[in-house]
Design a protein around this nucleic acid. Structure first.
Length: 1076
RNA sequence: AGCCCCUUAGCUCAGCAGGGAGAGCGCCUGUCUUACAAACAGGAGGCCGCUGGUUCGAGACCAGCAGGGGCUACCA
């Protein structure tokens, strides 16, 4: 790689585009990103949270991946065998939904027009496009992933892990099929998990209906009132419930309210009191009738379900709250979670599913409602009940309605057969791992959410009625008894005969007996089937019985171990089984990511070497969805956690404090940021903002592509397809542009000025490096002896040692902002503002030049290495140039520099270089320099006019300051006249007072005396204020007695300093007044 | 409803073993000083959300309140 270091090759501004273009391919070609197990070295591994292929990366991904790359690059430099495993996620529902939507928009086709394979082919195309875009984005950011190992959650390697895991869980009965109420997306026609549902308030109504009582006895009500927000569900009602002990329930509710009233803030008290009054009213007015209803329920009263003319029972159940509504509640087990629970307690009431998968009403409702959508059925039901005069009341009400995150349509609770994973033991294992510290979550507070969520141990519904995903490896069908021998066949025949007889002749004992026989036969036949399957296929298949009780054959689910396609074919062709249509929830494959990417279930050398990985870096919203599931799957599959630490980083918010999302339109493409500011600035800027507790708020602007001016992004304009620039009046397009005429306009990038700090910093570094490179000709490597060092050399080396220590420690603990700020401050305020300034003179001097060059090259070298993880491109660019001029460098023992900064060793702190005395001396120098500059500025002395100054101070300070004399001249244009206890103030001077130091700048003929007097008076007042505060503190007996002695001593000294300063200031005022 | 985070200069944020408030941007005044105007040298600007408590001493610790954001759950 040829690099020129001549000045013409070093522009005044850092050219980020050129550096990125030059160095990323170089790193890749050199194979620096690739890792292979190396028993001699310790491994360090991170698996990327695979971005999903639904869309391109946004700023949140940029943050996530920057933080990973920073650690990876540091660890690589520290000598670990470092692997960053990259890949992408297929994101089942999200991706299919996106592709289907486009298909409809652009070609007016539905997925059914294409068929399963056709649609899946389309989605693969989409995946290929977006994966390429995502990988390109990561590369542009400088991510040092091991691209040779790129995985996709739906590729063959990951599929193998999925199949293996599924088979094992299926065989243990941890995966089962069950009827459960699921969140049904009627648009996509699939179940979605709770995590894929969001709630949004919509305007609705609260209808009160009345159901007639069948044959009410005298004194009993003829109707019972119930209420609902979803009238159409009444068609699926199977009961109405009333509380078994309404009196006690009211009492309980009141007790709870009184408890809260006692603790409530004043503001909420009236409301609570109102609720208590309401309960009392109910006790008076409603309790007797509720108790009557309860008695009716006990005697088995029935109600007539209007419109259907079905009879449904009145039942006792605690779900009916006497303090709410009429005290009675309709029970629709197939369409409401709570009602479902009621059904579980009262199995006899049954459940009626009234919906087709597409959200229309099915054959279980009266003819006239069949085929209607929920919305139209609702209108019809309300109208018909109204006509029957059964509508008691209609209220307007805001309803918090569940919506599918994927299709944005309302969710219908729906009773369906689903595949589940039993979470009891699996969840516990993942909880234990965090509780006992095998997995450490950082920051710690996030462990709570993890444990709470897992603690519920809710079974995980893993089936999705989609086409894009891992198809469930289960075949279902019915074996004929012919296959299982004569004995079973006989039994079947006899049982069938007995059942025939049952119809004619019905003594109850016999029916009971028959049922038992049937159950026994059912078991036997399944055992026979399992044995048969085992005989045929050994342990390559596992079977479960399939709900349903036909006696004509044995209904089974058969799961096939991966790698036995011939068995799969045989199941289909010989036995007539069919494969389950459903695919698995995306998180199933994501949960295996740390294992599947390393080749599990094969015992690969990678798995043995890198697993468990070191850390997982992710955002807080998928702790439960993903992190928890990876832990439990890791423990289940290999008995070992997938990573030792989990670092949860902040979220990126917009200027209004809202999370960035595609749907809100406030997302930012990192490419926009990189085009404008460069990848280094993006990375450093993000790291600089990554503090422990604070999310990153990032107000963004549109950049007009015509005039380059910025336009603030608002809630209003962020969703517009085009925007008119308010500066130049021309239009540009945004991410929302879809119409061809809009898309034809140039696109306005979305950027944030929050990256300016980092951009400026990069430029500062570039120029400091540029200075160094321009002054290194004739560089001669060699050891630098301690007594050759100037004060500024020792100071810089001392600071460098401390900074090295702090940065390493901060990154080790994921304190990215601390690391970035430490480096920023050091590089700018110390290295650039002082060291580079001070070394200038020596570089011009033939004698001093050599040592100065050696220290400068060394310091730059270390600084670059410390910055490399955050700013990879710039540091490599400078490193390469530095390598041309100073291929061997270092002040202890010059060594050849690594061919790339990527492969250079991480700096180590040399405690021998840390020198508090030198740092204190330097601090004195900086203070004096600052006040001299301050006086020049406030007296409006032009920078080029030389000034003279004296410093009155103790001999010790004078001695410290003596070697710094030349620098006052070069850095402040100030000539030191006299340092020491005997230094005197010139007649006309401006002064400044520091603890134990007085500085006088001789300003004869230049000074604005009155302004100076006024300033000094203000200073005196300020000092007097501090003195008063200190005196008060020291006269406080409590302080003097109880505060630590050293603190008291410090205060005393501080007071003395202040008093001295005040005296000095007063003298100056006197002298100036006299000179007036 | 429960839990978590935030509230410090006009803006975005640091500061937290409790010991006289900081940075960047913006603003004001100077400066093309031989690495850097994306810079340099200065400056102005803060009852550290409010109320109590702990302490000799609170921006920091505790409690309550107010406002902002988020997560979880529920609402016939």
């Amino acid at each position: 790689m040829s690099i020129d270091t001549t000045l013409s090759e070093l522009p005044k501004q850092y050219d980020h585009a050129a550096a990125q273009k030059r160095w990323y391919p170089y790193w890749e070609e050199q194979g620096f990103f690739h890792s292979e197990p190396d028993p001699v070295r310790k491994p360090y591994a991170i698996v990327i949270p695979p971005p999903n292929v639904t869309g391109a990366l946004h700023l949140g991904h940029a943050l996530n991946n920057t933080l990973q790359d920073i650690l990876i690059r540091m660890k690589r430099m520290q000598g670990f065998e470092t692997l960053w495993m990259p890949g992408t996620d297929h994101a089942g529902i999200a991706t299919q939904a996106v592709v289907e939507r486009r298909l409809l928009q652009e070609e007016k086709l539905s997925r059914h027009d294409l068929g399963r394979q056709g649609l899946v082919d389309r989605i693969w195309q989409w995946k290929n496009d977006y994966e390429a875009r995502i990988v390109a984005q990561l590369k542009q950011m400088g991510c040092s992933c091991d691209w040779a190992r790129l995985r996709f959650t739906l590729d063959e390697v990951c599929a193998r892990a999925v199949r293996e895991t599924f088979f094992a869980l299926f065989k243990k009965g941890k995966i089962y099929r069950g009827k459960r109420l699921v969140n049904w997306d009627t648009y996509l026609q699939t179940a979605v998990s709770d995590d894929e549902v969001f709630h949004e308030p919509v305007k609705g109504h609260f209808w009160h209906f009345s159901y007639p009582v069948v044959n009410p006895r005298p004194g009993e009500p003829t109707h019972i009132t119930i209420a609902t927000t979803r009238p159409e569900t009444m068609l699926g009602d199977t009961a109405v419930a009333v509380h078994p002990d309404p009196a006690a329930a009211l009492e309980q509710a009141e007790k709870e309210l009184r408890r809260r009233l006692a603790e409530a803030p004043a503001k909420e008290k009236p409301d609570l009191q109102k609720q208590i009054d309401e309960i009392e009213r109910r006790r008076r007015e409603m309790l007797p009738s509720l108790e009557k209803l309860r008695d009716m329920a006990r005697r088995g009263a029935m109600l007539e379900l209007p419109l259907t003319y079905r009879k449904i029972p009145l039942i006792e159940d605690e779900w009916a709250k006497p303090e709410l509504g009429s005290g009675c509640v309709k029970i629709t087990p197939a369409h409401d979670q709570n009602d479902y629970d009621v059904w579980q307690r009262h199995p006899k009431i049954g459940a009626v599913n009234i919906l087709n998968p597409d959200g229309t009403l099915n054959k279980h409702v009266p003819k006239k409602y069949r085929g209607l959508t929920v919305k139209r059925a609702r209108d019809a039901v309300v109208a018909d009940l109204g006509a029957a005069e059964l509508v008691v009341e209609v209220e307007d009400r805001e309803i918090d309605l569940a919506h599918s995150d994927r299709s944005k349509t309302p969710i219908e609770p729906y009773l369906a057969d689903q595949w589940f994973i039993k979470m009891d033991e699996l969840a516990q294992s993942a909880m234990d791992a965090v509780i006992d510290g095998r997995v450490k979550i950082i920051p710690e507070r996030y462990a709570k959410g993890y444990l709470d969520w897992l603690g519920e141990k809710r079974d995980w519904p893993i089936g999705r009625q989609l086409w894009w995903g891992h198809r469930i490896p289960v075949w279902c069908g019915t074996f004929s008894f012919d296959d299982f021998g004569e004995e079973l066949k006989d039994k079947q025949r006899r049982l069938l005969e007995a059942m025939q007889r049952k119809l004619e002749d019905t003594p109850p004992e016999e029916i009971e007996d028959l049922n038992q026989k049937k159950a026994k036969f059912f078991n036997e036949s399944h055992v026979a089937a399992y044995k048969f399957l085992q005989r045929e296929y050994g342990d390559k298949v596992a079977a479960q019985h399939r709900p349903g009780e036909e006696l004509s054959g044995v209904s089974v689910f058969v799961c096939v171990k991966p790698g036995n396609e011939h068995i799969e074919r045989e199941l289909e062709q010989r036995w007539g089984l069919t494969r389950v249509e459903d695919v698995l929830d995306t998180w199933f494959s994501s949960a295996l990511w740390p294992l599947s990417t390393l080749g599990w279930p094969e015992q690969t050398k990678e798995l043995k070497y890198y697993y468990p990985t070191n850390v997982l870096i992710t955002s807080r919203d998928i702790i439960t969805l993903w992190v928890a599931r990876m832990v439990l799957m890791g423990l289940h599959n290999v008995g070992e956690i997938p990573f030792h630490e989990v670092f949860i980083h902040p979220k990126i918010l917009d200027g209004y404090g809202e999370g960035m999302s595609k749907s809100k339109g406030n997302g930012v493409d990192p490419i926009d940021v990189m085009d404008k500011f460069g990848a280094d600035s993006l990375r450093f800027g993000l790291a600089y903002l990554t503090t422990e507790t604070q999310d990153v708020r990032m107000p963004v602007e549109f950049e007009c592509p015509h005039c380059g001016k910025l336009i603030e992004q608002t809630r209003k304009n962020r969703v517009l397809p085009t925007i008119e620039c308010k500066h130049c009046g021309k239009r540009f397009s945004t991410q929302w542009a879809e119409k061809p005429e809009d898309k034809a306009l140039p696109r306005g990038a979305v950027v944030s000025e929050r990256f300016e700090l980092a951009r400026n910093f990069c430029n500062k570094l570039w120029n400091a490096s540029r200075f160094a490179l321009m002054n290194l000709d004739g560089f001669d490597p060699g050891r630098v002896l301690d007594d050759e060092l100037f004060v500024e050399d020792s100071w810089l080396l001392s600071r460098l040692a401390t900074v090295t220590e702090q940065v390493s420690e901060a990154l080790e603990q994921y304190r990215y902002a601390d690391a970035a700020r430490t480096l920023y401050d050091f590089a700018w305020d110390e290295f650039c503002s002082f060291y580079v300034e001070m070394v200038k003179g020596r570089l011009q001097d033939d004698v001093g030049r050599m040592v100065a060059q050696r220290v400068l090259a060394h310091a730059l070298d270390v600084l670059l290495r410390l910055l490399h993880p955050m700013i990879p491109f710039l540091t490599e660019d400078v490193w390469q140039r530095l390598g041309r001029l100073a291929p061997e460098r270092g002040i202890d023992e010059p060594l050849p520099a690594a061919e790339s900064i990527m492969t250079s060793p991480w700096p180590e702190c040399d405690p021998m270089r840390q020198d508090p005395e030198i740092e204190a001396q330097f601090a004195r120098f900086k203070e004096v320099l600052r006040v001299v500059r301050d006086i020049r500025a406030r007296q409006n002395v032009p920078p080029k006019t030389p000034i003279r100054f004296s410093v009155r101070c103790g001999a010790d300070v004078a001695e410290l300051l003596a070697p710094m004399k030349p620098y006052f001249s070069s850095m402040a244009g100030a000539e030191p006249v006299e340092f020491g206890p005997d230094a005197t103030a010139p007649a006309l001077s401006a002064g400044a007072t520091l603890p134990n130091i007085e500085v006088y700048v001789d300003l004869a003929g230049l000074i604005d005396v009155e302004a100076e007097i006024a300033r000094k008076r203000r200073e005196a007042e300020k000092l007097a204020g501090f003195i008063a505060a200190k005196e008060k503190k020291l006269s406080n007996a409590g302080f003097v007695e109880r505060a630590p002695a050293e603190v008291v001593q410090k205060e005393r000294e501080g007071l003395k300093d202040l008093q001295d300063q005040l005296a000095a200031v007063k003298q100056v005022i006197e002298r100036l007044t006299a000179a007036l």
